[in-house]
Design a binder for these strands. Structure first.
Lengths: 102, 102
DNA sequence: CGCTGGTATCAGCAGGCAATGATGTGAAAG
DNA sequence: CTTTCACATCATTGCCTGCTGATACCAGCG
């Protein structure tokens, strides 16, 4: 069966700020303070987005004293990559698969 | 430099109906009538989403008499796949790259 | 031609979600 | 023990966007 991509996961990554966070976390593990500095967003706003990313399984939290470090879960991104690759391959092979006009 | 994923493109694919359309088009080239049947959405709604997908460069239109066929552009999906793969790889190698607490 | 059917565009409405401010919690520093 | 700082949660507001109905456009067909 054609494994469709999870809409919720893409929706989560569709927000520009969240995508920026993910891009930053792809470089290094950061805590909220760093993310506030890098993105310029308010702490509350960041915390909201981090909650969304956490519940979507994109990031993991790692408490360190008073700080909370966030790190990416690469397997989620890798899974997305595979799903898109599968879609692309399917689209390639089905390019001439045209259903007749009704 | 780390080529970040295009937020607009992901946002476009983040809508459940649009993702369903893309999944359907990955199997075969279809015209609006078919998509209306498959998705159960109104024609107007479909047409709006097709416009978004077209402007995002995800699909191509191919007029055929009174009908308009839509087909996917696999290279866009393949590009997305590569970008996510790059992010995942970067995240893997940067897992231990932890910035110091301020 | 005029008619019919397929498709695109436009205007309006309603729901959802992101941004903000106030507040709570928990851990170190003094 | 009190204060301070990092972070999370809650409630509110405002905007964005997806859905709908009406309408215009274009291609065949009679």
């Amino acid at each position: 069966m054609l494994t469709s991509v999870d809409p919720d996961l893409i929706r989560v990554l569709g927000d520009p700020l969240r995508l920026q966070i993910v891009t930053l976390l792809a470089r290094e593990t950061l805590c909220t303070t760093h993310l506030v500095e890098e993105t310029g967003a308010k702490q509350t706003n960041l915390s909201n987005h981090m909650k969304v990313l956490r519940e979507a399984g994109v990031v993991e939290t790692e408490p360190c004293g008073r700080f909370t470090y966030y790190k990416l879960r690469p397997e989620v991104l890798a899974g997305l990559s595979e799903q898109f690759a599968a879609l692309a391959e399917s689209a390639c092979s089905a390019a001439e698969n045209k259903r007749a006009c009704p």
